[in-house]
């Protein structure tokens, strides 16, 4: 071991500082948690995308992943549990110029927000979902979630979970998502590229990020540290781009199929709406004019 050089890097700015609320850093996430890495990948993708910062809005729900909105120096909304997607839907429809990203966890998106997820996918709503899947509700102390693999032990499944988990890529694929990918918190480069593709992808995109949860999921299941989980991802991930999503289910500590599974073009909700209405209503159709300008006098 080597001595610490405490002066190192103190006067320098992190390359992503302009995208982060530095007055809120350090964040709440535990050592070895993959959410920070995923946020890092997301902000790197935002930086690379060339989309002006003012045109990106981040919406998150509740839970560990829900805190992400509080750290990004973008228009960011920390909403209620499960309702990030409908909030994002309203945001996107009321200002179609925005690139709207939902950053939320597996419990938030798939349990309490499951209905919103499948309907946003069905509509091909032009929003981007980054789903942190750490297989449990971590913020509340580690209860099992709709993605917890069978046999995994958690506080509300002390003898192991006996529920069948969702195969998330298959779920959103079958509901009509037009971009579906899954990576782990280890696949930072591929994850960044996927997020970058998703940001430019018109329509509903969904990226599942298998993320390490050392404090709860790993501890309850004696899987070691965050680093041990990353090592497990390295040894057990199989990249299968274009894989049939039906075969992407996750079993406890078994092989993980990752990759970009779906990338197809389909008219978005907004496109379909405007095109259909302009045909059926004809000349009388007045498309949505965008939000208020923000300059009107308030007449106090």
């Amino acid at each position: 071991m080597k001595r610490l050089d405490v002066t190192l890097g103190q006067d320098l700015r992190h390359p992503l500082e302009e995208y982060l609320r530095m007055d809120r850093i350090p964040h709440v996430w535990c050592p070895g948690c993959g959410i920070g890495t995923t946020l890092n990948a997301f902000l790197t993708a935002v930086k690379k995308s060339g989309i002006p910062r003012k045109d990106i809005a981040v919406v998150s729900g509740i839970g560990c992943s829900g805190r992400a909105a509080g750290y990004v120096k973008l228009d960011s909304f920390h909403t209620t549990h499960g309702r990030a997607i409908p909030f994002a839907t309203g945001l996107k429809l009321a200002n179609p110029k925005l690139t709207v990203v939902v950053f939320a966890g597996d419990g938030d998106l798939l349990a309490i927000g499951g209905n919103h997820l499948i309907h946003a996918a069905r509509r091909n709503m032009d929003i981007n979902i980054i789903c942190i899947n750490n297989f449990n509700y971590a913020m509340t102390g580690g209860q099992f979630s709709p993605t917890t693999p069978e046999k995994a032990r958690l506080t509300t499944a002390p003898y192991g979970s006996y529920e069948h988990p969702f195969n998330v890529p298959f779920l959103v694929d079958s509901c009509g998502a037009t971009y579906v990918a899954r990576w782990t918190a280890l696949h930072v480069r591929r994850l960044t590229n996927s997020i970058l593709e998703a940001l430019h992808h018109p329509g509903f995109s969904f990226i599942e990020v298998i993320s390490s949860c050392p404090t709860v999921y790993a501890r309850r299941n004696r899987l070691g540290t965050g680093l041990d989980l990353l090592k497990f991802y390295r040894d057990n991930s199989v990249i299968k781009n274009g894989a049939n999503t039906r075969e992407c289910d996750i079993r406890f500590q078994e092989q993980l199929i990752v990759g970009k599974f779906v990338d197809q073009e389909k008219p978005t909700y907004h496109d379909t709406m405007t095109e259909y209405l302009s045909q059926s209503v004809g000349k009388r159709y007045v498309p949505y004019q965008g939000p208020m300008q923000g300059k009107e006098e308030d007449g106090n």
Binding site: F77, T79, A94
Partner: peptide
């Protein structure tokens, strides 16, 4: 469609209210 508005029928009332808040914050 005649006055330049956007109507969306959501999947439930939870979503409706959330979408209204989102739209309000979009201006």
């Amino acid at each position: 469609p005649l006055v330049g508005g956007t109507f969306i029928q959501m999947e439930d009332e939870l979503a409706s209210m959330a979408a209204v808040l989102g739209a309000a914050w979009a201006g």
